[in-house]
Nucleic acid binder design. Structure first.
Lengths: 148, 148
DNA sequence: CAGAATCCATATCGATACTG
DNA sequence: CAGTATCGATATGGATTCTG
């Protein structure tokens, strides 16, 4: 597969990214206060994305979330939800019933985040087989590509 | 800002995500072979996104990448590039010159990933101030929201 | 029910030193 | 130049126990 497919389409995105990167790397690491790292660190952690997807369908109680992902410990569920709440992506509501009940829902900010996040998830699903195939190739053959 | 803005637009995305989640959580964790985790784990790690952005502008030599992000150690740069190469997102080319020279470039698959990734990055940049504000609010006030 | 607290295993990352 | 190898610090996550 040559680099010819949709080359024009991506050339634009490439340049934009290149410029963004130039303007970005100055503060990305030196300041260690980079907004992108702020967000991506969470996207990359083990449960955040799963919880966000679970909440995308509407408010969920703590127990329901716990049941939705059976192998998340309560410790991590609480911690993930707290971070999400702190970042303003999720809202926590307490109902003062006899056994206390709590539910969580996406805030407008959280809903807004789901759009680009969902796009990335879609890409991941579509590309998974290609990635798996690439890994097999890499692991089996030495496949050294030298330039002439 | 109320939840009213673009509510119709996001309702659609919500439902799609909710359905996706339902179909997803069965294999997301139990199988631990979830394609989404496969990708997001990398997006969340410390250097992958930065390297991808650096390569979005075109091929880069190892040394150039190292200089672009002065505080990445060679160990991590190599490791990140190897993983990217293994996943088929980046191609490595060796030029057998006297002091060996190597460069890295995005593959078509890598370029394709940059699109959704860039969208998420854009969102992160746009939303950073809102997130920072939410954190301040959370850290300062107890701000317990109880339902009536 | 919805957590908080504590302890421990592992994964991740950085610094340093060495090499073809 | 472009790595590899080894080591130690720290961050992350899981299991368990306890509570209002």
């Amino acid at each position: 597969m040559g680099p010819g497919d949709a080359e024009g389409t991506i050339a634009n995105a490439r340049e934009e990214l290149a410029r963004k990167f130039d303007a970005w790397r100055e503060v990305a690491l030196d300041a260690s206060r980079c907004p992108v790292r702020d967000v991506l660190d969470r996207v990359g952690d083990k449960w955040t994305t799963l919880i966000l997807m679970a909440l995308a369908g509407g408010p969920q109680r703590f127990g329901a979330l716990s049941r939705a992902a059976p192998d998340i410990s309560k410790r991590m569920l609480t911690q993930t939800l707290r971070t999400l709440e702190r970042d303003g992506l999720v809202a926590r509501r307490v109902y003062p019933t006899k056994p206390p009940s709590v539910d969580y829902r996406l805030t407008p900010l959280g809903v807004a985040m789901m759009e680009p996040l969902a796009a990335l998830i879609r890409w991941a699903e579509q590309s998974h087989s290609a990635i798996v195939a690439a890994r097999r190739r890499f692991d089996e053959g030495p496949a050294e590509e030298s330039a002439a």
